[in-house]
Design a protein around this nucleic acid. Structure first.
Lengths: 112, 112
DNA sequence: ACAATATACCTCGCCTGTCAAGGTACTTTA
DNA sequence: TAAAGTACCTTGACAGGCGAGGTATATTGT
């Protein structure tokens, strides 16, 4: 992994919600997808992932159900709720703003 | 302030170094500049700021000296070192990579 | 049949960065 | 001479990330 989790910190929930926005999924798979999408440059640690799931479930952003047994062990699937969609939109907006502000603060060129 | 410090977490040192890259400065001023540059949307808390200074000084990224008495109380100025410049470059790069990865992970459109 | 590996989930406890709250001291202004 | 602004600093609590460890099932190789 080439970037530290601390740099992403605070955006973990957003990442997970953005995934669940596309389709229901389960922990192990989400983790692999994140790793793949980032080109192997970032991976959520399992402990972090499950902490996030718990947080999101407690705040009503997602619900879970034991699901279809494909190969391997049983899976707990997660599904995003209307509240979750709303939260996701908010977090996406916050990310845009974070980017915007950070780019201004790190600007190396002269500000005119 | 419209965005929480936790969203910036891990990039505080980069922000400060990027400021010192332009010119020596002191805590109070850096804080105000950050607030201004972000359009009032983000401000470093003092405790966070001084924690960061301490960290950066311990790692040899910056040095400090008691400086010119303008109006108000005495000021401790900070100056970036060669090590600091190097670190700053690295952190700037990490920020670019963070953005890149986050944008991929949050992508709402279909990935093709 | 049995071990190894892969899939899959979960918890505990530490670490680190943020920040609310509190404090000090000097200077300017009313 | 009191208030407000400038400026610095510390302490302790809190929250999120994560290393380390554990559980259980399914598949694959020998």
């Amino acid at each position: 992994m080439s970037i530290a989790g601390d740099l992403i910190r605070g955006h973990t929930d957003a990442i997970i919600l953005a995934r669940l926005l596309r389709s229901d999924s389960y922990g192990y798979e989400i983790n692999k997808v994140i790793s793949t999408l980032s080109g192997g440059r970032f991976e959520l640690k399992e402990a972090t992932l499950y902490t996030s799931f718990k947080r999101l479930e407690e705040t009503g952003c997602i619900v879970s159900y034991w699901g279809g047994n494909g190969p391997g062990a049983r899976r707990r699937y997660y599904s995003i709720t209307p509240t979750g969609r709303q939260t996701c939109r908010r977090l996406l907006g916050e990310w845009q703003e974070t980017k915007d502000i950070m780019d201004k603060l790190l600007e190396v060129e002269e500000e005119t």
